[in-house]
Amino acid sequence: MSERITYQQFLYKHLRDQPGLTTLLESISNAAAGIAEELSRISFTGPADPGTVNLHGESRHHMDQYAETLFLTALSESRACFAVLSEEQTEMIQLTSALSQEAAYIIALDPLDGSSNIDVNIPVGSIFSIYDRFKTASPSHPAAVLQDMDGHIASGYVLYSTTTMIVLALPGLVTGFTLDSANGGFVLSHANIRIPDTGNIYSVNDGNYHDFDRGTQNYIRFCRQQKEFYERPFTARYVGSMVADIHRTLLKGGIFLYPATMALKEGKLRLAYECRPMAYIVEQAGGRASTGSKEILDLPLRSPHQRVPVVIGSEEMVNTAKRLLNACLPVNCEAHV
Rank of each mutant, 00 (worst) to 15 (best):
residue 94 Q to S: 14
residue 56 H to N: 08
residue 241 S to K: 01
residue 265 K to R: 15
residue 253 G to F: 06
residue 291 T to A: 08
residue 60 R to I: 09
residue 167 V to M: 05
residue 306 Q to Y: 11
residue 96 T to G: 13
residue 188 L to G: 04
residue 307 R to I: 14
residue 219 Y to D: 00
residue 24 L to A: 11
residue 274 E to P: 00
residue 166 I to F: 04
residue 154 A to T: 04
residue 108 A to V: 10
residue 312 I to N: 00
residue 236 A to R: 15
residue 282 V to I: 15
residue 316 E to P: 01
residue 170 L to H: 10
residue 283 E to V: 13
residue 206 D to I: 13
residue 274 E to H: 05
residue 23 T to G: 14
residue 202 Y to N: 08
residue 151 G to I: 05
residue 236 A to N: 10
residue 316 E to F: 12
residue 191 A to T: 06
residue 200 N to T: 08
residue 155 S to M: 10
residue 150 D to Y: 13
residue 204 V to Q: 06
residue 280 Y to R: 06
residue 267 G to A: 06
residue 28 I to M: 11
residue 315 E to L: 14
residue 248 R to D: 12
residue 19 P to C: 04
residue 11 L to V: 09
residue 13 K to M: 11
residue 46 G to A: 03
residue 243 V to C: 00
residue 245 D to V: 12
residue 15 L to S: 12
residue 44 F to C: 03
residue 220 I to T: 00
residue 245 D to M: 07
residue 133 R to D: 09
residue 273 Y to A: 01
residue 256 F to K: 00
residue 281 I to E: 00
residue 94 Q to W: 05
residue 335 A to L: 07
residue 70 L to T: 15
residue 209 Y to M: 04
residue 108 A to G: 15
residue 247 H to M: 02
residue 268 K to V: 14
residue 213 D to I: 07
residue 266 E to F: 12
residue 155 S to H: 10
residue 91 E to F: 15
residue 226 Q to T: 12
residue 301 L to C: 13
residue 54 N to Y: 06
residue 156 G to L: 02
residue 146 L to M: 10
residue 204 V to E: 08
residue 303 S to R: 10
residue 171 P to E: 04
residue 50 P to E: 02
residue 314 S to A: 08
residue 325 L to N: 12
residue 106 I to T: 04
residue 85 L to Q: 03
residue 291 T to W: 11
residue 228 E to Y: 15
residue 71 F to T: 04
residue 194 R to E: 11
residue 212 F to S: 02
residue 226 Q to A: 08
residue 208 N to W: 08
residue 19 P to F: 11
residue 199 G to Y: 12
residue 176 G to E: 12
residue 176 G to V: 09
residue 60 R to K: 15
residue 326 N to C: 02
residue 160 Y to W: 11
residue 269 L to N: 08
residue 104 A to H: 05
residue 36 A to Y: 05
residue 276 R to F: 03
residue 280 Y to F: 15
residue 68 E to H: 09
residue 150 D to Q: 13
residue 42 I to F: 10
residue 28 I to H: 02
residue 249 T to A: 03
residue 122 I to H: 05
residue 297 L to Q: 03
residue 16 R to C: 14
residue 285 A to I: 10
residue 63 M to K: 09
residue 60 R to E: 15
residue 284 Q to T: 11
residue 151 G to N: 07
residue 289 A to K: 06
residue 92 M to Q: 01
residue 173 L to G: 02
residue 120 V to Y: 03
residue 86 S to Q: 12
residue 323 R to I: 07
residue 191 A to R: 12
residue 206 D to S: 12
residue 112 L to Y: 07
residue 163 T to G: 12
residue 191 A to Q: 13
residue 249 T to S: 03
residue 243 V to Y: 00
residue 39 L to Q: 00
residue 76 S to W: 13
